[in-house]
Simulated scan of single mutants.
Amino acid sequence: MESNFTIGIIGGYGKMGTFFKNFFEKKGYPVVLSGRNKGLEKIELVKQSKVILISVPIKVFPEIVKEISSYIEDHHWVIDICSLKAEPVKVMKDFIKKGEVLATHPLFGPYEKDLKGKIIAIWRIKGDNLYKWFKSIMEEEKLNIIEISPEKHDQIMGLVQVLNHFWLILLAKIINDSGLDLKDIVSLTTTSFFKQLDVLRRLSYQDARLYARIQLDNPYGKKFRDLLCKNCLEFNKALNLPEEEREKKFEEYFTLAKNIASELEKLIQTY
């Protein structure tokens, strides 16, 4: 480790900022923080740090990058952890002219105690040393590292994040509107539905503002929400056909689902 290998986290008092502060300190790195009305001023943090990790809402990300960009020198390494990648990558390419730059998206939350098997997406923007260092410390934790272009990442997140969260919020609304007692639902649930309820339960720890940004900022989000609504209407319409027709239609839908499930069975076994 270099003698001056301080890691500076802009947004270091937020949930993910705190997570990475603890993560890097456990690995023996000195960490300094900048936050809203807390810690170091952003420019002072840049001057004191080798690695600059930007952990801020995507809405303010461009102005943060612009503010610090003229203070980034050749020895600096800059990392972002935004949940979308195309626009943040464009911003960093446009404004950060020196140093090395790496785009990342940790696909886990700030409450994880064990990172083994968790996923982090990365995309090298500039430089080899930062890329190798970051990849090696992620591999030490046995994370699955996925190298993916920003555009493809955002398309997949339209399904993996936007549609998933959309469905979970709808599930909660349906439970609320059903008139059924939540205790009765939990007491009589199947194993598979209990797993869905367990995922829904985790929303109680999440930040509504973050989830709103994931839902509203992804340019592919509307496509997947519309696709869900379209398929719900079509499937429901099929199930209201005369008896013989609706049974045939149900079998068509179920066969498609089984084919996807079979492919998933093969894929998931490799992870």
Rank of each mutant, 00 (worst) to 15 (best):
I10S: 00
I260Q: 09
K152L: 10
Y131F: 12
F23I: 03
S69W: 02
L45E: 06
N164T: 14
T191C: 07
G179V: 00
G35W: 04
I145Y: 12
G158W: 01
K50W: 03
S136T: 07
I52H: 06
A103V: 01
K116G: 12
F224E: 07
K85H: 08
K38I: 05
L180M: 04
K132E: 13
I146G: 02
I119V: 15
K230I: 09
K97P: 00
I52L: 02
V56W: 10
Y205G: 00
K126P: 11
L210R: 07
G11L: 05
D128Y: 13
V162I: 12
R246E: 08
N236F: 01
Y111W: 14
L239A: 05
L182H: 00
E63S: 13
E245A: 11
V199S: 09
Y205F: 14
K173E: 15
Y271Q: 11
R201F: 05
E234F: 00
V31S: 07
S136C: 10
E147N: 03
Y271W: 14
V101K: 04
I175W: 02
K142Q: 15
M16H: 07
T189W: 01
F19L: 01
S70Q: 03
I58K: 13
I10W: 14
D198R: 09
L180I: 00
K173D: 09
K42N: 15
K59L: 08
K135N: 03
I54Q: 09
K47S: 12
L45D: 10
I146R: 13
D217M: 11
K195H: 08
L227Y: 09
L84G: 11
I54V: 15
G12N: 05
S55K: 04
K27C: 00
L45S: 11
E73H: 02
L264T: 05
S70M: 03
K195P: 00
Q196L: 11
V60E: 13
G221P: 08
K195W: 12
A172S: 10
I214S: 11
I72K: 07
F23L: 10
I58A: 03
F194L: 09
I122Y: 09
L227I: 08
V51W: 01
D198I: 02
C82L: 10
F23E: 08
M138T: 08
M157S: 07
Q155D: 02
M16I: 04
K135G: 10
K98N: 15
I185Y: 06
R36I: 01
E247M: 14
N240E: 14
F254L: 08
N22M: 07
I119Q: 01
Q196W: 13
P106D: 08
L159Y: 15
H76M: 05
K142H: 13
A86W: 01
F95H: 13
G8C: 08
P30Y: 03
L216R: 13
V60L: 03
L45T: 01
L256V: 12
L210S: 10
A257D: 01
L102G: 08
V65W: 07
A86I: 14
K38Y: 04
